[in-house]
Design a protein around this nucleic acid. Sequence first.
RNA 1: GGGUCGGUAGCUCAGUUGGUAGAGCAACGGACUGAAAAUCCGUGUGUCGGCGGUUCGAUCCCGCCCCUGCCCA
Length: 322
Amino acid sequence: MDRLRTQALSCWYLTGPTASGKTKAGVALARRLGAEIISLDSMAIYRDMDIGTAKPTEEELGGIPIHLIDIVDPSEEYSLARYIAAAHDKITEIHDRGKRVLFVGGTPLYLKGMLRGIFEGPPANKEFRAQLEEKMQGNPPELLHKMLKKADPESAKRLHPNDIRRIVRALEVYELTGQPISSFQKQFENGVPATDCNVYVLQWPRETLYARIDKRVDKMMYENFLDEVKRLTERKLPISQTARQALGYRELLDYLDGKMKFGQAVDLIKQNTRNFAKRQETWFRSFTECRFVSGENPKFDLDFEEVESSEVDSSFPATDDE
RNA sequence: GGGUCGGUAGCUCAGUUGGUAGAGCAACGGACUGAAAAUCCGUGUGUCGGCGGUUCGAUCCCGCCCCUGCCCA
C-alpha cells in the first residue's frame, strides 16, 4: 500500500447523503477527536457559492478549523485529481501541527479517491476532446465504443456504449500514454475492511431523508439563494462548467435564462437533489470501508486509546497488490 | 335537468378495428478513477371508473350508474 493511501486511511471520515446532518454531527465529532475538518465536497470548494452548497457557517463551526472550502473561483474548472492532491497536502499540514483530521462531506467519488487512491494519469485534454467531438460529427455514437474496442478491449467490455464520458476518457488516456486505461485502473478494486479505518455514514430512512431535502431546499430559497445565483451571473467572469452543474445553481440559472418558471425550478431542485441522494447511497453501500450510523442519533464508538496506540501505519493489514 | 369530452401505472398520457396493455416522469436497483451535486445502465409496480349484457373470450362493443371538465338551459 502506498504512502498516500496509508496517510488517507489514518484520517476520520464522516459522510452521508445530502441533508443527512453531516455538518452538525461533524463539528461535534471533530471536537471529540480534537480534529480539524477537511471538507469532502466537490462544490463547497467554490467561493461565492454558499447557500446552495450548504456551506458550514462560522456559527455552525464554532471555532473548528475547516479546509478546502472557498479555494477556487466559480470561473475555474475543478477535478477529482486536484482535490485528491490538495487534500493530501492538507493532511500533511494538519498532522504536522499534531492534530487529527476529520473529513466531512458527501462527494462519494472523492471519498473513494481518498480511501483507495487514484492512478497517475494524464489530466483531461481539451484539444483531444475537441478533436474527438469533431470526428464524431455525423457519425453514429456507437463509433466511439468501436474505437475503444480496438484500443482497449478490456475497458470496452466494462463500459456501456452510451457511456460517452468514460469512453472518451479511456480513449484520451490511451492516446496520451499509449496504454489502455484499464491497465492503470487497478487500485479501486481493493477495499479495506470497515474495522481497519474510520469511515462513518449517516443514514436515514429514505422517506425521512427526502422530506429533509425538500425542507432544506425551501429554506435555501427563503435565505435568498436566488440572489446568490444572480450575483454569479452578474460577474465579468463566466461560470465554469464544473461550477454550473451544482445542484440548485443549474436549475436557477435556467430559470434566470427564462427556460422555466420559478416554481418549476424549485420543484426540480428538490427532485434532482433527491435523485442525487439516492445515488450517493448506492456508492456508500458499495464501500467495504463504511460503517453506517443513525442520522437521527449518531453514535461513533470511538476508541481513542486504541486508535492512538496503534500508530495507524502498522495497524493496516498488508495488501498483496504492491 | 339536457348535451358533450374524458375516466388506463404514483403523475401526464398513448393504445388495443375484441385475444387481460405501454411511453415519459416519479419510484426502486446498479455502474462510476482527472466534468462526479456530473454522467450512464437496468426494473412496469395496473380489478384499463362501477355493475350488468353480447361473445369461446370484453379494457375495447351495448345498456345503466358514478365521477370530472366543457357547452346549453
